[in-house]
Write a protein that binds this DNA or RNA. Structure first.
Lengths: 234, 234
DNA sequence: TTCTTTAAGATTGTCGACAATTCGTATTGA
DNA sequence: TCAATACGAATTGTCGACAATCTTAAAGAA
């Protein structure tokens, strides 16, 4: 029994393993967005029976990475502009809430530890300029810690097991290593300060604004991406 | 192929049917909250194989009505005071968002139809005082229409396939037929007016307040319920 | 007695095969 | 040439049986 990094999923059964593996492949694009999933084919590829694979597919559906139709089958979600907007509207509302709750419920040592993490990120970034570490894993870590700081288990589950994989999928496949790094750092700092001051209202507002900026950033990349694809199709 | 009333679930397969049936039994309390679910027993009861039942269990887990542990099994969620608070915090944020979006995106005829529905409810309620129709199905219908009015498919799915069954479970099992009917009606009216005026900010605020009042109401019943159970155990 | 160990029973996880449905193709008719 | 239909291949849904794991309870040691 081992543990998965991104959602703290305990891996005990074979279907757990297939679930985590497929999730990574979908998020990273090894399994192409919008593509049809053949149960017999994938079962053979992962070396498990169809029952086990179907169990994994069910859980991928729960976190919005695949869509099923009865008697027709499964396909990977398509990354559309509309869906991006929808998901970010929901994310903004939920993480805003998480931030407000965290201002009340986060333990002092959790806050200190998060501030420390931010400093660490800043230095790492200054030393190895251009590395994408902060932007990808670091940003996720920051958000994840605040989400956990809300102490609302339902909310935590909704975000980390539900929305975040889809958000990661957009970020990874759009190649998010943009120039928003230092700006995002300042925003993160302001948010953690508001939380430290137990100013939930401000923390919520700042987080919503931060997420809106992030959305705009991804949307730009998305349009660029879409334009490239159009050109490629001609 | 038929259709389910509460979440517009298309019922095509056997597991669909089991899912909808079990969901109703759990929400209504026929299958007791917190109880362990035996796969062989329930499979026999519904006249399906374990594979079919497990498919249904997976989907019940997706809407938070059962919880699974690997190699241990499934139990129905326990209705605790803590969970009630958590769920309502999330509900407030999400339906607040839905309301704000609905102020922009709801079609004029949808708004008119909803106003008409409200009037109809008012009259039904006045004529048959004491009937619980409005409180249960009517209230749900009102909220559901606004959620759909947001035109955000992800949000719609999150609420109607995810949270609402759990909320219904609390309401039904706490016996929500209280005296909040006429007050809720006024609040509903204010909300739909704000939506009609495209005042998303106000609509969001009013909805959040409305949900907070509803939460307080349920919480009161819950404590009453808990006190009764304590007395019964002595 | 209390704690640990062990074995039996029951439950869940996984598998391969069969049944039901859908999809692509070819054939037929206008 | 096009539309509709019917057939066959492939895919999904469902089943019953076996393997792996957990739980319970009894037996033994401290």
């Amino acid at each position: 029994m081992t543990q998965d990094a991104f959602s703290e999923t305990l891996i005990t059964t074979a279907s757990d393993q297939v679930f985590v593996d497929m999730r990574r492949e979908i998020v990273e694009g090894s399994i192409e967005q919008g593509s049809k999933i053949s149960e017999p084919e994938l079962a053979k590829r992962y070396g498990v029976s169809r029952a086990t694979l179907r169990e994994a597919l069910n859980r991928l559906e729960s976190c919005y990475l695949v869509e099923r139709k009865a008697n027709v089958g499964c396909r990977v979600v398509a990354l559309t502009a509309e869906r991006l907007i929808e998901v970010y509207q929901v994310r903004s509302a939920l993480e805003g809430l998480a931030c407000r709750l965290a201002a009340d419920n986060m333990a002092p040592d959790e806050v200190q530890s998060l501030k420390q993490l931010l400093n660490q990120h800043l230095q790492t970034q200054r030393v190895k300029e251009g590395e994408s570490y902060y932007q990808e894993a670091g940003d996720l870590d920051f958000h994840y810690r605040i989400i956990k700081g809300s102490k609302n288990d339902h909310l935590i589950h909704l975000l980390s097991n539900g929305l975040y994989q889809l958000i990661r999928m957009y970020r990874v496949q759009m190649g998010m290593v943009g120039p928003r790094v230092s700006k995002a750092f300042d925003e993160h700092l302001a948010i953690i300060n508001a939380i430290e001051n137990h100013d939930g209202e401000l923390a919520e507002l700042l987080m919503k604004r931060h997420i809106r900026a992030s959305q705009a950033n991804i949307q730009t990349k998305f349009n660029l991406h879409a334009a490239q694809n159009e050109r490629a199709e001609q």
